[in-house]
Design a protein around this nucleic acid. Structure first.
Lengths: 212, 212
DNA sequence: GAGTGTGAAGCAGTTCACAGCG
DNA sequence: CGCTGTGAACTGCTTCACACTC
């Protein structure tokens, strides 16, 4: 039942990433079938949660046996959009931007950083890996020429919003934000935030509670 | 009512980080009072959400006027544990670890990276900023000597779990994980994950849906 | 009057429990 | 017999609505 017609809860989608990671491990180890409980154990959830999550995608488990690792891997890749290559633009070639650029798993998963933008005159025209860094004034033309699907924001908070407004105006529909600010953008643009400070402060809160 | 006796929802705590950021902006701009609606607008939530969140901390808003920026800033700093300095150990001095080490806002917020561990013999004994990189075999003694409160994990997934087990055994109660794996650890240890791939794949899912 | 504080209602994600299939 | 798939119960966060106060 319930093929991929309906919306899938965001929390479930994020767990799919984890499941996929573990399935790939299992595949490498030559394991051919896996039960919900095993996946749960590995991913820090419960068996019921795993089954419920997977039920959003259809029902292809085998009762008494579990799920085919190969089949499930394929389904998850498909639903996560990992069967196509996504063209990514990186805004900001500072320390964080550079570390992201060189992060191997991105490319392995089909995310190709084809465009790098920075406004430091000393960087414009230099290369990061196989990509030439371009200036901010070239933003729109670069996004268009490179047929960008997705933008990673790694610029200082103060300039992030203005830049993202231009990115959205240029038709981009997915933004991954590393800048420590809450970006405001239209509802039809997908936004995910990766915030070092928020997570760290949440830990700090937990520690402060313990200490009392 | 409802002082800081009760547990505060995690979602609210994460929003506190955002509110605090904006309050600090307001403070710099010389704004002395702020209404829930203003904070909501800035942080991408609703006024009701802001008031509900703040009500977990007590009630010190002024009806008809809003909240005192200075007072609220102080309260949030306190509840987030930002009024003390936290001593942080960084595991892994690779590209991501190095970028994190140099990330200025950490220090500004009272998170001091006092310890850096890496198992690359070429790195051990060299310096990262003002800290000397130490080998993995010194992990326990380093955590103890440096009175570490919190550990940031920035090592490859394959070695993360084993290292964290030792960290937990050494008495650390808060872990920020950048490794692309789900760490398994006791319930009394606070864990937060910062995952590049999970967020990116969630965007990829959103894009794939759009495209259909 | 403007804006807080908060019970109550609404909604979403999680867990339970069990029928049903391989 | 083991393990899936799923409605039903539950839990917890969010939104609403309004009495209350500065």
């Amino acid at each position: 039942m319930n093929s991929f017609t309906n919306r899938i809860p965001d929390a479930a989608v994020r767990r799919f990433s984890l499941y996929l990671r573990y399935l790939e491990d299992f595949e490498r180890s030559g394991i051919r079938n896996v039960a919900s409980g095993v996946l749960a154990e590995r991913g820090g959830t419960t068996a019921a949660q795993v089954r419920k999550d997977l039920s959003f995608l259809g029902s292809f488990g085998k009762r008494g046996l579990g799920y085919s690792v190969a089949e499930l891997t394929g389904v998850l890749r498909g639903v996560l959009g990992l069967d196509s290559v996504w063209r990514v633009a990186l805004l900001g070639a500072g320390r964080i931007g550079t570390a992201l650029f060189r992060y191997e798993p991105f490319r392995a998963r089909g995310f190709h950083i084809t465009t790098v933008i920075d406004n430091d005159p000393g960087k414009i025209g230099t290369r990061l890996g196989d990509v030439t860094i371009r200036g901010e004034h070239e933003l729109e033309s670069a996004l268009q020429d490179d047929r960008t699907d997705l933008v990673i924001v790694a610029v200082p908070a103060a300039v992030a919003q203005a830049l993202v407004d231009r990115v959205v105006a240029a038709g981009i529909r997915a933004v991954l934000n590393y800048a420590p600010t809450q970006l405001r953008l239209p509802g039809d643009v997908a936004l995910r935030n990766v915030s070092m400070m928020v997570e760290l402060e949440s830990l700090s809160h937990a520690l402060a509670r313990l200490r009392r």
